[in-house]
């Protein structure tokens, strides 16, 4: 694949109560955005294990997007804070691995923010497109067995 034809592959983990609904609402309003992201639905951003994000990068994602409820708005009171905590740590690990920070984003997008969902999607795709494919030496960095023990 040559770089000018490069289509970033984004894995998105969306909370069932906010960002997933915002994506539904964007659909209902027929907003148009880049088709690069594939959404994995979870009940809460607090369910998102850092392993999921590492795993997505290891399996070929060029970017990972996490969508959760705004601070104070978690459907389960505080799962989004737990997600934030993990994300801050994980970002440091990703940096160590040489994964550019634009490749991994945590966004608070409420059910009513379809417009924001759309612009986030487009923005993320553009930024990752500019970075080019993530050329991870997965064999060197991710030993499958090691990931499994994590």
């Amino acid at each position: 694949m040559s770089d000018d034809k490069f289509e970033p592959r984004i894995v998105a983990f969306f909370c069932n109560w906010c960002t997933y609904l915002a994506a539904d609402a964007a659909g209902v309003s027929r907003m148009k955005y880049a088709p690069n992201a594939r959404v994995v639905r979870v009940m809460c951003s607090g369910r998102i294990d850092p392993q999921f994000i590492l795993d997505a990068f290891a399996k070929g994602a060029d970017g990972v997007l996490v969508g959760g409820c705004h601070p104070g708005d978690c459907h389960y009171q505080e799962g989004n804070y737990k997600a934030l905590r993990r994300v801050i740590l994980l970002k440091r690990i990703l940096k160590e691995m040489g994964i550019e920070e634009e490749r991994f984003r945590l966004e608070w997008i409420s059910a009513s923010e379809a417009e924001r969902l759309k612009s986030t999607m487009n923005d993320m795709v553009e930024k990752v497109r500019a970075l080019g494919p993530l050329r991870l030496n997965t064999a060197a960095i991710f030993d499958e067995k090691e990931v499994a023990v994590l």
């Binding site: 994506a23 539904d24 964007a26 659909g27 209902v28 027929r30 907003m31 088709p35 759309k118």
Partner: peptide, 16 residues
Amino acid sequence: NIREHNSWVHQEKGAA
């Protein structure tokens, strides 16, 4: 979800 998250928000048939 190939409607709200896909056919309703994308235009290009190949990519969708």
